[in-house]
Structure formats: C-alpha cells, structure tokens
Amino acid sequence: MTMLTAVADLLGLSSNTLLVAVAMAAVGMAAGVVGCFSVLRRRALIGDAAAHATLPGVALAFVITGSRGLPVLLIGAVVSAVASMGLLVLLRRFTRTRDDAATAIVIGVSFGMGVALISGLVARGVPGSGGLERFLLGSTASLSAADARLLVIVSLLSTGLVAAFVKEATVVSFDPGFAAAAGWPVWWIDFALVAMTAVMVVAGLPAAGAVLVTALVVIPPVAARQWTDRVGVMLVLAGAFGLVSAVAGVAASAVVPGLATGPMVVLAAAALFAVSLVCAPSRGLLAMALRPRMPLAPPERGGP
C-alpha cells in the first residue's frame, strides 16, 4: 500500500479516497465489459430488474443480521437479484404474461418492497438503518478500504471470465441455434452471462444506487457499439467508457459536497454516449448525414 499512499499524497487525497476511486474505476470497467453481452443479447432490461430487486435483499440482510457491513448487504442483494430473475423465468414459463410486462412487474414490485422495507426501518428509528438509503441513489462516502478491495476483486474476476470466454459468449449471443447444433450448452452460457450481469449490478450498487446502476451496464456498451463492428474492440471500449464514467462520477461527487454519486456516473456515461452517437465514424449521425445515399445492395425479395 506504500505506492498507493504515495500516489494519494501526490494528488492531495486520503489513501482511502483514492482506494475507493480505484474500486469504482474497476467496477465501471467490469460493468461495461459484462454489459456488452447483455446488450447484444437484447437483455438490457433484465439488468434493470436485477438492480431494482437488490433493495429488498439489502434491507432484509440488515434486518436478519443487524450488520451494516457492505459484504453482508451485498450478499443479500445478490440473493434477491437472483430470486427476481427466478420470478421472471417463472412468470414467463407458467403464465401468459409477456416479456416486457413481466420485467416491468418485477421491477415495480421488488423496488416497492425495497423502499417500503427501508423507509419502514428508518421511520421506526432502527439504529443504522439510515445508512441503507444510500443504496437508492448511491454514495461512496461510507466505503471502507476493505469494501473497496472486495469490489476490485469481484470486478477483475468478472472481467477475466468474460475475456476467457469471449468466443463462447459471442457464438451463443449471435446465433443460439447454430451454437446449440454445434454442441455448446447454450442455456448454461446464457445463464452465466445473466448471472454475471446481476453480480456487476450488485457491485455497482454502492456507487450508483439501485435506480441508476443499470446505466453502468447498458450505456457504455451501447456507446462502444457505435465505434466498431468487432466484439473484441467493443468489449475494450465499453470497459474504457465504463471506467471513465465511474471515475468522473466519483470525482464530481467528491468535489461538490452533497452530490450523489449515481447521477454523476450516469451523466458522465450519457455524455460519452452522446459523443459516440454523433461522432462515431460509420454509425454516427454526422457520418450518416454526410454519406451519399446509396443502396448497399440490389433490392431483393425477403432481404433484411
């Protein structure tokens, strides 16, 4: 940690602040990388359902253990996020509820439960319950060095997993039928991708809060997609965009007292997204406006 201390001194920050910033950078990067496949597989809203569903888990973990420790609360968050995914699967499997409606229901119900639980605890003046509200909009102020280390480890593991299985995730996301015929366990790879999205949503929870953390998983990948037609490049760019957004958000909320971290992270990501939307070389609005209108291929019956 001596190097960290030295860098912190150089920047005029406490080493704890710096460690938290590093953790958020790692979380932002990993969320961007993991989010790529959730966006490519058209599952952006599933991450949102998982994010909102973390709240009741956080509150219940607090009630059951009486602990405010981040690891305990985040384990609660993972459990309830996974439970919400299960609920989503059950709704689709055994009822005639459509996908979008089922997702909206899970988002609303789980978020309502979470807010009811937390506000109830706060209203009764349960000691320590005030700290739970930070999971709504995100705040890095109360993160300890140990918390930060945990988040770094989770983020690096997730990024490493995606890097190791890019090939498998790509073939399953692009063409599940072909992948199944070639013998890849499509269901399990899909499940792993959704589970990793849930884990990254939970890892981003302290910084961005339940309402906004999906933005970390969705916006950097969509922005990255603008710049490239290759999955590998998209993953790297999404990681970089996520990292930059997270650091910018943390910095902004550190400089302006009282500013929640979550909204700042999202606004930073949105700025990158806007630039990508306009300026990207071939898919950008500018490039499309400047390009002469020409058919790409002779028109055909039944073309895409």
């Binding site: 490519l40 058209r42 090939k167 498998e168 790509t170 073939v171 996301s173 692009f174 063409d175 039928g177 072909f178 015929a181 070639a182 013998g183 890849w184 997609r225 490239t228 037609d229 290759r230 999955v231 490049v233 998209m234 895409p304």
Partner: peptide, 28 residues
C-alpha cells in the same frame, strides 16, 4: 454435422464481420 440456420434467426446488426462469422465454424 454442420448446420446453416434460417437467415431470419440472427441479429444482423451484431458486431461481427463476415470472416468472424465463418470462424465460428471452427469453434467446436
């Protein structure tokens, strides 16, 4: 055993190039 699925079955906006798609045939 090789397989060519229906063209409608995939997302044609996916960030892969022609050569990347062909390479998927070697993954197994």
């Amino acid at each position: 055993v090789g397989y060519v699925p229906q063209r409608e079955s995939v997302d044609w906006d996916f960030p892969v190039r022609a050569i990347d798609v062909v390479l998927m045939g070697t993954y197994h």
